[in-house]
Design a protein around this nucleic acid. Structure first.
Lengths: 111, 111
DNA sequence: CAGAATCCCAGAAGATACTG
DNA sequence: CAGTATCTTCTGGGATTCTG
């Protein structure tokens, strides 16, 4: 790697990535959307029982603002929503799957 | 992927990974140690000007406790230390380099 | 140089209740 | 169902000072 790529004095690329996915639950949300393709709000809640409804809502909104996920609203009664990854969000797949892979190996070591 | 791998009700692999690297500066520290091989305390500080000395110290200690990095102390005057990745820490390389890669692409889109 | 100790506060996050 | 609003609690992290 040429050295001019590795100029981190005012923000390295890792920090850019962190700005997008470092929220406490963001990468977990993205992970589930990779696996499930699309999810409703309460489905995500069940998949992440340690994340409060409030927190889930906040993290979803931030991911939406950053164009990582998109929300489809069906104006039915009762209301239905569906969250999916955007095309930008899908580019995070290799990264998130590396996190899955490393986590699996780590869990094997520690059980 | 077989479904029995994707059982996330009580903690998905992504969450395991997050437990290790989700500290505010941890993945940045690991990133620099990948690039530089080993670093002294003040070198890391210069590479991460937005991280206070206190924070750097805390994050280094946690990474050390989790066996991701190791510290070598040279009992000279003035004291010298050197931080490196452990063998476990080195297994995070693909993940961190994916973060670098994604960050670079993201920065290209947003400039 | 490489940290540790102490003090302090904004903001993160929980609990609970409410709503279109 | 899919959130929002409000209140409260607690902790992450800055600023500063001290030390081997």
């Amino acid at each position: 790697m040429p050295h001019h790529i590795y100029n981190c004095a005012e923000g390295c690329p890792v920090e850019s990535t962190l700005q997008i996915i470092s929220g406490k639950w963001k990468s977990v949300i993205i992970y589930h959307l990779i696996k499930e393709k699309n999810c409703r709000f309460n489905e995500l809640q069940k998949l992440m029982p340690n994340c409060s409804r409030r927190m889930l809502s906040l993290q979803l909104k931030e991911l939406e603002n950053d164009q990582i996920i998109a929300k489809t609203i069906f104006p039915t009664v009762p209301p239905k929503t569906s969250y999916q990854l955007t095309s930008l969000g899908k580019t995070l797949t290799p990264l998130i799957l590396e996190m899955e892979k490393w986590g699996n190996k780590y869990n094997q070591l520690h059980e």
